[in-house]
Design a protein around this nucleic acid. Structure first.
Lengths: 338, 338
DNA sequence: CAAACAACTGGAAGCGCTTCCATTCTTGAT
DNA sequence: ATCAAGAATGGAAGCGCTTCCAGTTGTTTG
């Protein structure tokens, strides 16, 4: 690999000048610029990013820390981030935290130590306080899928409450009154918010919240199935079930089938997130769209604007969910199950 | 951040000594080691990986280049790699090539320039020749999901031919004779291999290959659906369809439903890869397991063994597919459709 | 035409670490 | 006690680049 020395020698100018054209500095004459460019081309020079980073403590790369690397949610998000950064000539350095606090912190240190110019965090084990503390460090960062009031500007998140509300309202409008709910783990912010929205719709319709129709899942498929078993064991009637994500909804569909409940004629099911596989299901799952790609893109735009000083970028922090009507939700057949 | 200078000063030893304990060199007395460790602890010293990498042209990190970041296939793979590396104290730097040749090459350069100690490549746009050329460079690498004879040692791949064979054989054993096949793009190695296996099973059973029952898809859902439409337009009978991946199989299931064909009673469907969503489908999809996680793990072990000189690692390059029987394939009901 | 200023260029220090080389200190064998 | 061989240490150069500072050149104005 050619170094800057060789370029400088071949071009017949100083190191500094080469560095200047490399960094697009002002105060470089066209003449030397041309000479340098020519030399670079001839030597097929590629600047060494490591040396650059050491000397400048910049890196043109953004660290991305996610809790997991698999699953539809993270895949879409990473994909969207990588693309947006690449288009801006920046690079993503991706690492995983495995939803474990220590592991997340290690990942964070790794990224910071690598001189990442900024970070994109999708973490759930670290506490709000840790994150707030982190914001006093010099590496700027944004947080996805989480709303911490103290650093709201850095947070990009869905209006989960509204999502929960929309799902329930949709069911209610179709005549459902006995609506079961399978939530995510209530230790997670998004879970509680979605549940709150669900309850709001219930209250609005003057439907009491029935604890026997509530099941706390863990966002994984099996817990959707377990939820249905639970409701059936409880011997409570229900004509619809709202699930806090699509995985659990798919589990619920299976749980229903296990018990010879036909979807949607016997029971409607609605999911949340609009993962890509919802369209593969039969019946196709009605759900709430979670514009995760847009959020991810926006978070990189925040970085482009605030870290790389790019202009003309409108930033918004809150994203709105939308009802996606498909096949798994239908009008309640009154009189049958009531 | 404390630097090595401060540690050296506080410990009362030279830079070199600090560096030696940092790198676990021999020829360091217990005494100085203790002093240095204490100083490091007191200063909360974290070595600067960038400086390290510049001085040593190593980095303790492995570059991972995948064609896409989303989808079940890549997610599982990345997840598995990251975990294996993390357990070995190494780091993954992940980037995407977007199945575009130029983009892949850029990603490659990015990783090489960052002094990655080794690379894991899952690329499809770059040619075999490019990869063979690359093998003459100093950065070692492994290739996933591709078999290039000239550098076989570095390749980790599935016996796709056997997979195709197993799927077809399963159908044949259940009495199917009119078997449609929806392949992946024939420009891809795995597609043609799977098809070859399929044909072998046909030949073995003396079933002629019917071109009207062949459709070239693109590994995406929609093309599975299109495949079914195509067969129906061709007015050819079929009692089963083998698909070259699960996405297309899910599309085929939908295509069948669109045409009031019941799965599996009217028509059996088998997929390939055993993606996680196959269990969500109804009926659950019978498929061929692709041990992608094991392959990914093995590829990192190759690196641990050959680059980091770790002992006791058995390496194998070829992985075997396995039939996963679920609900979408049943015995042919002879006499009905024949 | 000189003075004042801006544009341009080169020199050199420094980013934080590794590593080669030379030097000093220990051993154990004699 | 002596001496070689090896272990332990320190010094210093260097990895490839950025950036500050000072110096040079060119341009403009009174």
């Amino acid at each position: 690999m050619a170094t800057i020395y060789e370029v400088s020698a071949l071009a017949g100018v100083s190191l500094s000048s080469v560095s200047r054209v490399l960094n697009d500095h002002e105060h470089v004459s066209e003449k030397t610029k041309k000479k340098v460019m020519a030399a670079m081309a001839e030597l097929e020079y590629r600047p060494n990013p490591v040396a650059r980073s050491l000397a400048s403590s910049r890196s043109d790369s953004i660290g991305v820390l996610v809790s997991e690397l698999h699953g539809p949610f993270f895949g879409d998000m990473l994909s969207s981030i990588e693309l947006a950064l690449r288009n801006a000539g920046k690079h993503a350095v991706i690492t995983a935290g495995h939803s474990d606090e220590e592991s997340e912190k290690k990942g964070l240190d790794f990224l910071i130590d690598r001189n990442c110019d900024a970070l994109i965090l999708l973490v759930d084990a670290m506490s709000d306080d840790d994150l707030i503390k982190l914001s006093r460090n010099k590496t700027p960062f944004v947080i996805l899928n989480r709303n911490i009031p103290e650093i709201r500007e850095n947070c990009f998140y869905l209006d989960n409450e509204l999502g929960g509300y929309l799902a329930a309202k949709h069911l209610i409008e179709l005549g459902h009154k006995d609506i079961a709910y399978i939530s995510g783990p209530l230790s997670k912010q998004d879970s509680t918010e979605r549940l709150t929205g669900h309850k709001r719709a219930l209250i609005e319709a003057k439907i009491p919240f029935n604890k026997a129709l509530f099941y706390e899942g863990d966002y994984l498929t099996q817990s959707g199935r377990d939820g249905i078993s639970n409701f059936i064991e409880n011997k409570v009637l229900f004509t619809a079930v709202a699930c806090a994500n699509d995985e659990m909804a798919s589990g619920a569909m299976r749980g229903a089938r296990d018990n010879s409940i036909n979807i949607p004629s016997d029971c409607s099911i609605i999911g949340f997130d609009n993962a890509y596989f919802t369209e593969y299901l039969f019946p196709q799952l009605s759900t709430i769209n979670n514009p995760i790609k847009a959020m991810a893109k926006m978070s990189t735009e925040w970085i482009l604007k605030n870290v790389y000083k790019q202009k003309d970028l409108e930033i918004k922090n809150l994203f709105s969910p939308e009802l996606i009507k498909r096949e798994s939700v239908v009008k309640v057949i009154t009189g049958i199950k009531q």
